[in-house]
């Protein structure tokens, strides 16, 4: 490998579509989400730089580590969460194709996206305060509820496309746009499951502020909290990008720079849908969430898989 290609690779990883783009776009989506919610709730909402200002302000604040906490783990967890989310983006096409796609990368992405949730659990558990402990238990309970519908709904398109590569799936749908409407059910279930993964209303149970204060993040402060929030923002981008690649045909076969507006439009649309879900509902209880995910969401996702198997059989 020459120096030149190494530099390009580094630029890919650190600037676009890697760290810098992910962080800034994540903050932008966070702001957009808040602004949209505010408008729908008839409020003014935050100014455009709010997310960045929050981040910088948190960076400047003191970090307090509880005496009872395992200090090293406590400090490392936010970075684990962030690293996992950034790694997941490597295999998801931003624009035309992924930086590093391979057969089976979808399974890897699903697993990588589970790591932040596990770090949330560990963060809550290692803080040892009662609120964090309850929050941590809720994180884990909730993980078992939304993970299955999420995976099932992602399997459908993979079966239809006959590929376990995310770029492959998006190329397949770009080539057969007529099949996109058939994935509507799977898209809807994945959207709801993504809402659960991102722990937003109605599934913000692990850090429901009126019940358990800050949930798993109760003891976090300053820089560490800032990076946790950044990781969640990035997860929003990665989640939206994943859904747009798997269900909506990614960049619709466009190449190079033309593909980027399509990517942005699709992720923005998905953010709008997520924000809409957030304002429409009340937070539900953890046991209601599990009931809902297993009784309704998982069967619906399963129905989509069956439909895809049938379609695949008919199409040959």
């Amino acid at each position: 490998m020459t120096l030149d290609s190494t530099l390009t690779q580094l630029a890919y990883l650190l600037i676009f579509p890697g760290f810098l783009f992910l962080a800034l776009y994540g903050m932008y989506l966070q702001w957009l989400d808040r602004k949209l919610c505010a408008i729908m709730q008839n409020r003014v909402g935050p100014p455009w730089f709010q997310a960045l200002a929050d981040f910088i302000k948190l960076l400047a604040k003191e970090v307090i580590v509880p005496d009872a906490a395992e200090s090293r783990l406590f400090r490392l967890l936010p970075f684990f969460a962030m690293a996992a989310v950034m790694t997941a983006l490597v295999s998801i096409p931003v624009g035309r194709s992924a930086l590093f796609g391979f057969q089976g990368d979808m399974v890897v992405v699903i697993y990588l996206l589970t790591i932040p949730t596990v770090t949330f659990f560990l963060a809550g558990w290692s803080s040892t305060s009662p609120y964090s402990t309850v929050g941590a238990m809720r994180v884990l309970t909730q993980l078992f509820a939304y993970e299955v519908p999420m995976m099932l709904s992602l399997i459908g398109p993979a079966i239809l496309a006959g590929s376990w590569k995310i770029t492959g799936i998006s190329i397949f749908f770009a080539a057969n746009p007529i099949l996109i409407p058939t994935q509507l059910l799977g898209f809807a279930t994945a959207l709801v499951a993504l809402q659960g993964k991102l722990e937003r209303i109605p599934f913000d149970i692990p850090h429901a502020k009126n019940e358990i204060v800050g949930g798993q993040f109760t003891e976090y402060s300053g820089r560490l909290l800032a990076f946790f929030y950044l990781a969640i923002d990035m997860e929003l981008v990665v989640g939206a990008a994943l859904l747009s690649a798997v269900f909506l045909g990614g960049s619709l076969g466009l190449t190079r720079w033309a593909a980027i507006p399509v990517f942005l439009a699709k992720t923005l649309a998905i953010t709008f849908l997520l924000a809409l879900l957030k304002v429409l509902m009340a937070r539900i209880r953890i046991e209601q969430m599990i009931n809902f995910c297993w009784k309704y969401l998982a069967p619906l996702a399963m129905a989509q898989v069956l439909l895809d198997v049938f379609l695949k059989y008919r199409l040959g």
Binding site: M40, Q41, L280
Partner: peptide, 21 residues
């Protein structure tokens, strides 16, 4: 389900009730 949907969409095109005091 989602009984407020119409109200919420209506508010997308309305002026906010609050002001930047």
């Amino acid at each position: 389900p989602a009984r407020v949907f119409r109200e919420v969409i209506k508010h997308l095109f309305r002026k906010p009730a609050t002001c930047a005091y």
